[in-house]
Design a protein around this nucleic acid. Structure first.
Lengths: 196, 196, 196, 196
DNA sequence: AATGAATGAGATTTCATTCAT
DNA sequence: AATGAATGAAATCTCATTCAT
């Protein structure tokens, strides 16, 4: 009974896009409503306000990233396989819908404290992956926090570079290459060579 | 060195800090005036308005970065020397005043068109540096745009990682290490080995 | 006795309470629906809207007061008996359900014109009672409008005083005392003494 | 330097009047601004918001009442003189500007807790006056809280009665009469008779 | 040069009411 | 009868900017 919430997803999608296009503060409720084809008040049936909407969109997608990572991690633990899988999965995800990643980047800042407290933080997961690979000897022991950031930096900046028009074509085309550099920096190849 | 000046008028410094702390849209003229110890109207003596202030702060500092890069590039062209110098210079700069870099990152987006048109764009300069190194055979020929982004990503993400509390201590302590990875990814070491 | 019914539908009772607790304008349809355990739309099954609900609650209860007074007035006309009966009846009523009286006080203002036109207005009835007592010589002739207000003031302020925490216990305990003062101010005792 | 706050008092007076005429919730910021001849934003230079404005107006005037009482109390302590003075002062005050008293009555409710905590609460002062008169034997010992409310009720309801059109002319004309009733109810006359 | 009151435009939010289900 | 999504109008509040002093 009662109408189905026909417009909820339209509102959320419009918000996501506009936040990316014009920034969170640069986007008004009116903008969102207009693009979603509803009136301003409709938003408040589904979210307490703009902040709440931002938060909901963020954590929903943040959790999505974390799930993606967890899923791959479980299926094959070896660093040399996992990293390429992760890079490829992320790039495929980004190619398919660049808005979500950009939105998450955009908003991370504002929700910093809450992100830090989040155990399923994707960065935290990557950090654990690196730590474990070091422990298992899949890569040489070293400065894990730095290595985590370097891998993150290469992967994410590739996406940013595409956004800024400095890199062409789908990211997936560079997945293998970028993953290779991640392994190179990790010392994974040297380690596996040594193991041979 | 062509570093941007570290001392600004109270208004500009207050604005810079607040923009970083609360975002540009999240900072009101009143906020700025309050922190600077003046009243709202005073700002309009020095700048046409908020937009003008943002733009002034951005280009002033953006140009500073470019100058820093140009200066180093001219003094020694070899990639294997230049990259470590650049990384160290950037990290020193960041350690001394993290606000400026963060502000530039924050605002890039909004001024995107104007940044792209700017020949002295720091990213553009790095891109040229990489291109030239390839031309000269200092590093193997390859996907220059991607390599530029990878270097950028590693360097900048190190700063971000520190900001997010994942990396401790001054960035400068990691300068050599990070630069080494940049050269590794560039293939500079292999190239120089081959040259031997 | 013609007391207004103490049980209302959930909606009406919830509305009554909330109006007293948070004011009419401070109470939303949603608030009422929530407390009544229904949804917003349900209210419109029973009332045309919020205004209609307020009006209905008011006149229902206002008429109840008038009935209470009329009933007692008819049963024994003598002022010296009637006043104590009225005071006691009002105090009993208030003790049993303070919300109704408070609600009526709260809303009187807004419905002023309609109340004035109402012949069965409780204040109007009291006024007639006083006038008649003067005519009959039960109390000395005098400033009837003022006397009416003085009686009203003493009785009602006793209730207000309890609400504000300045008077303890059930009002009924003070009924006799307060009634005595009303008669004292009316000159009823002197009059009856003189009649002796 | 800077313009003088020309409109502050206009805003506050307009607000006071409108709150009385249409209720606090029934009065919008726009209404206030319109009557004061300013734009809506002007209000926020002087008060944080509507609530803040209400609070400021209330406590300013509430304190005014308390001062009036304190002043008279100090000048002559005897109950038989003080009560008529107080009643007259209050009626004169009301005749001169009925809005202030009505506003205070209107808002008391909402600020109940804060009022209770206020030592200079006019009701609290009256209560002390009565208590002291009992202690000094100026009036017979008895139920002080009730007596306080009865006096309050008579005095205030006279004002309310005039507002509702049931009592004509300036209140001051009734000051002596009402004060006489207050003393009568207090037993002051009997007490002074007994003292003779 | 500076002040800070006031403006004017627009943002977020609330809410009585309507209406498809 | 009831639901609750959506509307539409209005309310509160914010803020870059202007301007009299």
């Amino acid at each position: 009974m009662g109408r189905p919430p026909l417009k909820k997803s339209a509102i959320e999608r419009s918000a996501l896009e506009l936040f990316v296009e014009k920034g969170v503060d640069g986007t008004s409720i009116r903008d969102i409503a207009e693009r979603a084809g509803v009136t301003e008040g409709a938003l408040y049936r589904h979210h307490k306000g703009k902040d709440d909407l931002v938060r909901a969109l963020f954590f929903e997608n943040h959790a999505g990233f974390a799930k993606m990572i967890s899923h791959l991690w479980k299926s094959d633990g070896r660093f040399q396989v996992l990293i390429p899988d992760l890079v490829r999965a992320f790039f495929e995800f980004y190619d398919q819908d660049p808005y979500i990643f950009r939105f998450v980047m955009l908003v991370r800042h504002k929700l910093l404290e809450e992100v830090r407290a989040d155990e399923k933080n994707p960065v935290e997961l990557l950090s654990r992956i690196v730590r474990e690979a070091m422990k298992r000897g899949e890569i040489p022991k070293g400065d894990e926090p730095l290595l985590t950031q370097l891998i993150l930096g290469m992967v994410m900046q590739t996406a940013v570079g595409q956004y800024y028009g400095r890199i062409d074509g789908p990211l997936v085309d560079r997945a293998e290459t970028v993953a290779g550099y991640c392994l190179l920096v990790s010392g994974a190849e040297a380690a596996s060579a040594a193991a041979r």
